[in-house]
Each structure stands twice: as C-alpha cells, then as structure tokens.
Design a protein around this nucleic acid. Structure first.
Lengths: 177, 177
DNA sequence: CAAGATTGAAAAATCAATCTTT
DNA sequence: AAAGATTGATTTTTCAATCTTG
C-alpha cells in the first residue's frame, strides 16, 4: 500500500530557500535592533509603530490595527505603546465608535523623533539590504516575499475570513515624513 | 552647498520590499515556533541545531561553528545545547585540536528525534511557504534572499575578514536523515 | 458571552562579564 | 593578552488569564 500523504522532500532549490529564510529571520532582527538603537535610540518595534501611525488618517490607529500592520502580537503592541507613551511620543484615547477599543495617536514629539530617525534609517537599510541589489532584484524580491507572505497568511486562515488582515500591512504606503 | 551624503528615499518597490521583510521577520518565528512545538515538541532553534549536526562529519560541530551556521548568538547556542544535552539528544566533548573549544555531538536518540520530526516539518514548510510558489518562484526567491544575505554579511564585515562565515551556513547541504 | 485590550508569568535571545586555555 | 565558551542579568516577545465594554 502506498502512503498517499507522504510529502515530497525538499529539492535543492527549496532547501536553499528554506535555509536562507531561516538565516534571515534570525539575523535580521539582531542587526536592525542594534542599528536603530545606535541611530535613534528607538527599538525596531517602536520605530515601526511610529511609522504606521504617521501614515494613518489623523495619525492614529487602534491597537488591534497596529498589531496587524506590524505583525506584532496584541500584548506586544500594548507594551510598546506603553513605552512610547511614557516617552511622550504617542498618547492613548478611547475609540469613539467602539468603547472597547483604544487608539494610539502620534504626538508632535513622536513625529519629530520619527523624522529625525528617517535619514539614518535610509542609510542603514541601503547598506544592509539594498546595496547588493539591482532595481530588477528589488522588484523580484518584493514580489516573491509578497507571495510568501500571502501563502503564510492563507495557511493561517484557510477560509480567508480575516482576508486582507496581513495584506492590510502591505497596502499602498505613503510616508508622511 | 549641497549635501552630498543625503541618502535617496526608498522608491515604491524598495518600500514594499522593506515592509515585506519586516513583516516576514516578525511573523515567521512565531508561526514556526508553534508548528515545531506542536509537531515534534522541539523549539525552532533546537531543530536547526540538530539538523546542522546531522549533516556534519561525525555528526559533531564546535559551538562557534554552530553559531555561524544557525545565525544564533554564541550564548544562545550554549543554552540550546544545554537543553538538548539534558534531553539526551546531544553530548559535549572537548575539542581535540584546541582545548579551548567544545564540540556538540548528535546522539542516536537525537538522530531519531530529528528523523521523526522530518515528515511533519516537510508538511509545514510546504503549507506555510512553498504552496504558493512555482518552481521558478522558488529559484528566484532563493537567489534574491541569498543576495540579501550576502549584502548583510558584507555590511557587517566590509573587508571580508570573516569571509565565508555567513556563507558557510549556505554551503551545499545534504540532509542525512 | 464575544471582542478589544491589558497584565502576570514565562520563554527566547542578547549583552556584558567571567572563566579557561592558548 | 586573545579566543572559545559559559553564566548572570536584562530585554524582547509571547501565552494564558483577566478586565471592560458591547
């Protein structure tokens, strides 16, 4: 009897991709954390939260929205916003339409900090990731990473009930700084 | 006076790649950790360490070698090997050629655990990442992730003194299971 | 009770300091 | 002293339980 559900082993190309992905997800956070701290005294998660707030209407987002856009857990968002609020970079308000929710809003100080962080950020991202890539490579890389994110999203939510949740984080983005 | 060193802002393609990368490095570890725990009761880092050991000559590697191959910090490797040793999946020996070093060796129990984990691992990786990719996509994704890892490596070590350190982790790999 | 959000306890990972051997 | 490795303290992140509102 043959087992119909035995999965195909990874071929060499798949094996290489899997290992590269593993290395990226382990190495990138450490490097970035160090870069951001040195440049702006901000944690990576703090920077990303400030960035998303700066792009939102009224520069405010609900906590759950932030979690989706940043791929952080709800509890992590709560703690990061705590830290940012303590530093005066954001403040919390109750959500007007739904009293259960809270919104985080960017303060002018928060916007200043984000603006100050932008130029060093650009240098770092180019140095760390983009300097070795042609324009065509960037396009290809964006396309395949997008596909991998889609696959991941669908695997987590096969029926698409939360459709667009992950995709929302990749909506057309306009930097406001 | 024009500032010669003002970096170019990210164009839309670069912006998209940067955001996709951020989301991947935040989301992937969490999903993988959950998958590995459910399938094999192994942490991601434990699985990766066992995998590299299984592929090494004599199924043994020095701690520093493991750190490079797995993109984990030396202290993290030390603690993961501690845990694996306590579970009887690896054991430590002093390095014969250099008394300062230690080697971690795979036990037969460790190999068994790795073998048992392989089939569920395959299913998960295909489900999470590969099911949405064509063979050409996999090849492209591997190529561009490899380029990004190279760029990252060079940015960390511009003169290439530790050349091949990161690359070593991406050497032609033969699964031994 | 569901949903949104926060908090306590715990795990994963890191850095700086230490110990051992060269 | 420098290299390899480990340990203590700390940070980042998560899960499970809790609180609050709809």
């Amino acid at each position: 009897m043959m087992r119909v559900d035995r999965p195909q082993p990874l071929d060499p190309g798949e094996e290489y991709l899997w290992r590269s992905l593993m290395r990226l997800v382990k190495a990138v956070p450490r490097v970035l954390e160090e870069d951001f701290a040195a440049d702006s005294n901000l944690a990576t998660s703090e920077y990303v939260v400030l960035m998303h707030l700066s792009e939102a209407p009224d520069q405010a987002l609900r906590m759950s929205d932030l979690a989706i856009r940043t791929s952080l857990s709800p509890s992590r968002v709560s703690r990061v916003v705590d830290d940012l609020a303590r530093a005066g970079l954001v403040f919390r308000t109750r959500c007007s339409s739904d009293g259960r929710g809270y919104e985080a809003s960017l303060t002018s100080l928060g916007l200043q900090r984000l603006q100050a962080a932008y130029e060093p950020f650009l240098r770092r991202v180019r140095l760390r990731f983009f300097d070795g890539l042609s324009a065509a490579d960037v396009a290809e890389a964006g396309r395949v990473l997008g596909l991998m994110l889609d696959t991941l999203e669908r695997s987590l939510d096969p029926r698409g009930e939360v459709a667009g949740a992950l995709s929302a984080g990749r909506a057309p983005a306009e930097r406001n700084i």
